[in-house]
Design a protein around this nucleic acid. Structure first.
Lengths: 102, 102
DNA sequence: TGGTAAGTTCGATGTAGATCGAACAGGACC
DNA sequence: GGTCCTGTTCGATCTACATCGAACTTACCA
């Protein structure tokens, strides 16, 4: 069962850039992109604690970069690539295109 | 007379995003882009002090986003759009494409 | 009905950085 | 030589935020 929550507007360009300027968060976004689809939280980071990760998810969510959904009782994070692209064409996609291999 | 200084490599993507995530600095970059060409420092900001502006210039310079040149004894800042594009295609140009009018 | 696992929330802490004024350095110009 | 003008550097300050552990919530499962 998929239970998608209310999705807020994408934040300002400033919000989006600030959200992506943190290494932990950029890595999260990259993993979501690589995973293609809702991904359980725990697969999106390592090196920081659960509470820190949750803090970063919140910032990404408030910037409108990601979305939260609950699938079978488990929280998943979902990249809102299309929405961000619609708001700021090329910004997120070009960032994700950096470092094609590795 | 144009006296361009040693130009360092463009920083990491993280550096560039962090540099652009500050409102004062993004505005500086936008004005340089609009000006098209080396621009005197004073025209690139308002609302902050000289020393603060100089601090922001330094961060942009260290990220490889801008360049400093001295024209007729006066310091000018110059956007390194081509260099940043070469390193991270589409990133800076798509950011600058946001908010076409105003 | 416990127990475990996954996320969030809550304080607390530490550090990076945005900001300022004042002092300094280099040209242009008189 | 003096005197603006422009920009950088230097400390100092203050706030934002990245980080953690601990407590709480909810859901699944035995």
């Amino acid at each position: 069962m998929t239970d998608t929550e209310e999705r807020v507007e994408v934040g300002t360009l400033q919000d989006v850039l600030a959200a992506l300027s943190d290494p932990v968060r950029l890595e999260m976004v990259r993993r979501m992109y690589a995973g293609a689809g809702p991904t359980p939280c725990a697969q999106l980071y390592d090196g920081v604690s659960k509470s820190t990760a949750s803090h970063h998810f919140k910032i990404l969510r408030e910037a409108g970069v990601i979305d939260r959904s609950v699938i079978g009782g488990q929280t998943h994070q979902d990249l809102r690539l299309d929405d961000v692209e619609a708001a700021y064409p090329g910004v997120l996609s070009s960032i994700l295109a950096v470092r094609p291999a590795r």
